[in-house]
């Protein structure tokens, strides 16, 4: 199960989520999750980096000597991030300005080197691709969820400045969820990121606990279930 495509995808999205379980890449996760759009932008950039770096590392895995693998992986990741940084500067210039230092810092995101070392350097290209995609989307999911919570509590809106990501047509996508909201500034400030991430971790643990409990209660009477169903 763990080695099937679905298994790999589930690992990245839920069971081994980089943001909620491995707790990797916390620096960008905490720093840029003040709004949904910032989180989405950085999440997608990280996902793209992960996919390309996983594929590349998997392709070269048989030619890289183990003694020098880490510097080689870092060089590969750095080249990819440089490419993505230049592309974002060209096509999403305003978003690029907001995310600032955190785009080049994707190089140092432990989740990326972690997947290169732990998965891509030991697996075939197709599985490395699925793993990179799932891990990246899992990271994006946490960024967007945290961004949505903080934006909602902090300024009462969702998807503000959507035009940075989706072009001028999306300027009206901003949802004002709570009218005439005073703004709970703490949610947007750094403490809000830490408290918010802690709450997300707690919620994930509650869900996992419920799932194990349900699985346990279902498994006991399996032999009594009607076979035709």
């Amino acid at each position: 199960m763990k080695n099937s495509y679905t298994g790999i995808a589930l690992e990245g999205l839920w069971h081994n989520n980089p943001g909620l379980v491995q707790l990797l890449g916390l620096c960008p996760l905490l720093a840029v999750s003040a709004t949904v759009i910032n989180g989405l932008g950085l999440g997608l950039a990280t996902t793209l980096t992960l996919v390309v770096s996983n594929i590349t590392v998997s392709l070269i895995r048989n030619w890289v000597r183990p003694e020098v693998r880490i510097p080689v992986f870092v060089l590969v990741i750095a080249s990819i991030v440089t490419g993505i940084e230049l592309a974002m500067n060209a096509y999403f210039h305003e978003l690029y300005n907001i995310l600032g230092i955190f785009i080049p810092l994707i190089v140092t995101n432990c989740a990326i080197i972690g997947r290169a070392e732990a998965f891509a350097s030991k697996n075939t290209v197709d599985r490395a691709f699925i793993d990179g995609l799932a891990m990246g989307l899992g990271f994006t999911l946490v960024l967007v969820l945290l961004g949505a919570t903080r934006e909602l509590l902090g300024s009462g809106t969702l998807l503000s400045q959507a035009h940075l990501m989706f072009g001028e047509a999306a300027r009206n996508m901003t949802l004002t969820v709570i009218d005439d909201y005073r703004g709970f500034l703490l949610a947007i400030l750094p403490p809000g990121a830490f408290i918010g991430l802690g709450m997300l971790l707690a919620i994930k643990n509650i869900i996992d606990k419920q799932l194990t409990k349900r699985a346990a209660t279902i498994n006991i009477p399996t032999d009594t279930l009607p076979t035709s169903a």
Partner: peptide
């Protein structure tokens, strides 16, 4: 402190 920095 939460109140002071959130609702000046």
């Amino acid at each position: 402190v939460v109140l002071l920095i959130s609702f000046p």
